[in-house]
Amino acid sequence: MLARNAERVYWLGRYVERIENTARLLNAFSHVMMDLPQSKKLRWDMLLKIMSSEQGFTKKHDEYLTENIITFLLVDADNPGSIRSSVKAARENARTCRDIIPLESWEVLNELNLLVKRSMDKALNRRYRYQFIEDIIGLCQQFNGMIYNTLSRNQSFDFLIMGNLVERADMTTRILDVAAGILLRRNSDVQTFDTVIWSEILKATSALTMYRTMNGPRISPENVLYFMLCEEEFPRSMKFCLSVMRGLVSVLPRNESFCEQLSRVEKQLALCEDKIIIEPEELHIFFDEVQKGLSALHNEIANIWFLKAYDSTPALSHSQTQTQTQT
């Protein structure tokens, strides 16, 4: 396939995954806040930390008010990480490679775009927000279902799913990093509510039911971290993402350096597999390393297979602008 198209479907995969993850995160967070007593609430800017968009936020707003943060993450066109921006970017990438993805999946993205456009204002009202977010999640899943069931297992599929997986692994580690950073450092008097919070974190990654079938309902930070990072059977765990990536890449040409980098990330993960890290400082360093590893994986993909591979001069191309908006 064209290197240009490979890059587009890859980003399409990433954005769709990002939209769904952000939506889930917002719903889970709203939910957990209702369960926490006044004095023990979390801070909404935790979400900005997870999305790495604190800087963008403080440029526009002076105060971390709940409504501002939600608006910023949901519908702010100036925030490249908002759901609205991601929907636009997903659709834009799909628009330029319509010939290689199933027609219906393109239509779903249009529907998603229309939903955001039409219901944006209404969604800022708390009462409708839940439904709005659920609808977004539903459309993302519809898109993914179509990809899995109607797209040939060709290179378009490979790159689209690679995009999915890189984004998913990235988001999972971000959520866990920030959440663990806050929860494991809290005073013991507020920790009674931590079970509620950890279970919402599982919900944010649609992992709750599967976690329970593995571990029963007992929720401990160790088990949650292990499940999200190292569980082999769960399709959203970091380990699963990496192993699917390896399978996809095995049929792509010139994959050696990617596979080497993949092995490095797997090795980092193995550190946690032997004994789950729970000490906050150490855990943060671990996540930092894993994220660097993931970002290196992304760079490998871009350097080996995308248009960039043909560039002798690293000029600012379209692809790089997109890369900059990824976080």
């Binding site: 709203s30 806040m33 209702m34 369960d35 926490l36 007593p37 006044q38 004095s39 708390r126 009462r127 927000r129 839940y130 509510f193 079970t195 509620v196 279970s199 309902p217």
Partner: peptide, 16 residues
């Protein structure tokens, strides 16, 4: 959803 901002309501979802 608004009511949960102005009240401290003890959570119940931990029954299971």
């Amino acid at each position: 959803p608004e009511l949960f901002d102005s009240h401290s309501i003890l959570p119940i979802s931990d029954y299971p």
